[in-house]
Design a binder for these strands. Sequence first.
RNA 1: GGGCCCGUAGCUCAGCUGGUUAGAGCGCCGCGCUUACACCGCGGAUGCCGGGGGUUCGAGUCCCUCCGGGCCCACCA
Length: 882
Amino acid sequence: MTDALRPDPARPTDGATPGDLRPAVQAPAKVSLDGLEDRWDAAWTEAGTYAFDRTAERAAVYSIDTPPPTVSGSLHVGHVFSYTHTDLVARFHRMRGRQVFYPMGWDDNGLPTERRVQNYYGVRCDPALPYVPHFEPPHGGEGSQSVRAADQVPISRRNFVELCERLTAEDEKQFEALWRHLGLSVDWTHHYQTIDARAQAVAQTAFLRNLARGEAYQAEAPGLWDVTFQTAVAQAELEARDYPGHYHRVAFHPVHGGPGAVGDGEAPAPIYIETTRPELLPACVALVAHPDDERYQHLFGTSVTTPLFGVEVPVLAHPAAEPDKGAGIAMCCTFGDLTDVQWWRELQLPTRSVVGRDGRLLRETPDWITSATGVGVYAGIAGATAFSARAVVVDALRASGDLDGEPTPTTRKTNFFEKGDKPLEIVTSRQWYIRNGGRPAEGRDLRAELIARGDELAFHPDFMRVRYHNWVGGLNGDWLISRQRFFGVPIPVWYPVGPDGTPDVASPIVPAEADLPVDPSSQPAPGYTEAQRGVPGGFVGDPDVMDTWATSSLTPQIAGGWLADPDLFARVFPMDLRPQGQDIIRTWLFSTVVRSHLEHGSLPWAHAAISGWILDPDRKKMSKSKGNVVTPMGLLTEHGSDAVRYWAASARLGTDAAFEVGQMKIGRRLAIKILNASKFALSFAGDEGVSLDPAAVAAPLDRAVLAALADVVETATAAFEAYDHTRALEVTETFFWTFCDDYLELVKDRAYGSGTDDGAAPDPAGVASARTTLAIALDVLLRLFAPVLPFATEEVWSWWRTGSVHRAPWPTAAHLRAAAAGADPALVTVAGTALAALRKVKSQAKVSQRTEIVRAELAVPADAAERLRAAFDDLRAAGRVR
RNA sequence: GGGCCCGUAGCUCAGCUGGUUAGAGCGCCGCGCUUACACCGCGGAUGCCGGGGGUUCGAGUCCCUCCGGGCCCACCA
């Protein structure tokens, strides 16, 4: 048999664990789900039910790299959905005997927090301002009003960071309350924040080691830039969106007398290009066409002048130019798009940037514009936004006759920062990068290495691995990790300042690992005093912080105690499971693999469980606004946590699921049914208590039902092992309803021990067999349901057992098979079908099911008849057949 | 343009490596206050398995193709 079915040698085997039995059953007269969440959350915390035993060896540990939710984002049902999936796995493995390392983290650094703090407190960060002790923000505490940017009070970076910490602490309380109410079996003593000192130390250490190994480097290069947030943006944070614009057909003029001059004296025909960004004309450095394009062969090597600005630029050939796009010849500007960057680099063109970091055209007239007309036109656009500069340039082109026809509307895909709402510009800046295989590096093929790592990882479901493959295969640059923001982990380097006051960025000063974390903008570089900051012969701190992914790519290391607790780390790393959403495979999953590969030479985890989206009933991805209408806590209180968990557990990994209240109601019904059926099954325990003695199981029907349950255990176990929680739930649930509807009804009278209608005395062995079977089945069913319905199962467990069902061993088929003594499970089906036939007669006769049947004849196949005889008395009793 | 997932009863979904009359729950219709459960129980009806080809003794299940839905990547002249 597979591993899946082998009991863990370190634990007692499943089955009856008589020491757990209470002397007397304490089921309430009226069962209820109300209030179970708070009661059991408190009890589990009190008992340390989910505490991780850190003395366990690695092989006995199951470790989970929990996704740290963005605390400044809003909670929505999608969180409840995917975090439930993780909890199912955690609970299963805990019951299988593993020590489950299940920490919780909060992702609280980065832009979302900054933005929320600005709006919430009505402040904005101005790093030039001094720190104000005991600063109280003008707003805050009274809700989530949004303060207009113009009304935001400027405060120092340290004050700003303090407010970030204050607000995230509040948010984190809300999250913890939700997770507890949902029943996540997290060990709350293991939690972290992506901005806490430990996380900062890990992030900075990992960065410095990358730097020492040559995997981190800084480069001055054109890159994607968000003009709203005024920060560089990484490839992984891009989002292509439709963006309306216009094609402008613009004339460039061949240079008279140049090498390509045509004829003498006649003005050569202009060359027309098409552009959607005429405002970049002053940044034009060349015209580019495909080398094989016959229309432009005679122009390659010649020069043209730009309209309006009169700057002479060459006409060049490059294979990236597409003959069927626009006019087939493009104007290359520094920089309009990434193709421009490619041409600029590969054709070694000059840099003539005109767009500044604020998204406006440079205020100074660029020195390459010398013509009177050019200077005049530029004066009209200096300092303007790209949008308004465009209108000015178009008017000027129209006036000069260089605009052929009128602009024609078009829609194209344009790169946006995923959190921004203005198209990205390309700006040259000095940034930090970590190698991720996106750019060739000397001496190693990192891309191939990372693809190989991805192949080692078990994706659930497997088809999600193609997203990893596609992403790694399509990378077009290394990972840009520096951000020009405030609330984040600082880049831990300083630069010496030369005698002329210029920082030497090529010689970063790094701190000792033992001193981490550091903040170079408030702490002096090693060997310097704060008074030397910014002065000649002194130092400056790198002003940037790391991108949030640069920290969260280290969650296994942060949570697992890398550096701070090597003993713990050795017991949990590489981890077993990374659960996460499909949308962040290219970011979180990939970047975590990169860091682990570079630092540890291994995968960070063996399995990745990918949850799907929650969809509205109209099949659209559930929008944030709608998600906010239905608050997760509201859902949990309305339907009960078990019910909501049931809904989540009904959806397979990797598959989008509908937000369906109906499914939650079914879950609630199941949970209540468990309470009631359990109360019933336990009601037969007399003063002698409950018996789980398999030897007492004698009746053929009783043995058959345990044989059927053994099959269920095997299937459910194998399914959970394969990360298929829906199958495990489905098979358990199907059995349970049949158990209640048929088996329970069939053995009811026998279990009562009330004898037959004609007064015959009950058979004591038959009574004991029924009662014992009920208890054994209940014992197993509660454990099978425990991962999905932790509250209802724990409630029932407490009526007749000591300890927690969540620490009880996962059931195995072996002891059930022993009790079943080789019985054929089909008898349950046969007897159930026969009972249904008797019910149908009464239903169609429109009489109560209680009505007695004087005489019944069942036409059944021979083999079924043989079986049925074994359950004949039970059938007669349940059908009230005289 | 490249790739992935999906299309099965009104709805949400199962149908594993192809094998007897295609399943579940919800909803719907009818019956029933039966000492576990009325937050319930019992019974019933419901499907050109997106269309079309093909492979096969046999296809919801495999192959091709088309249609429809969703998603990822590329695409700013």
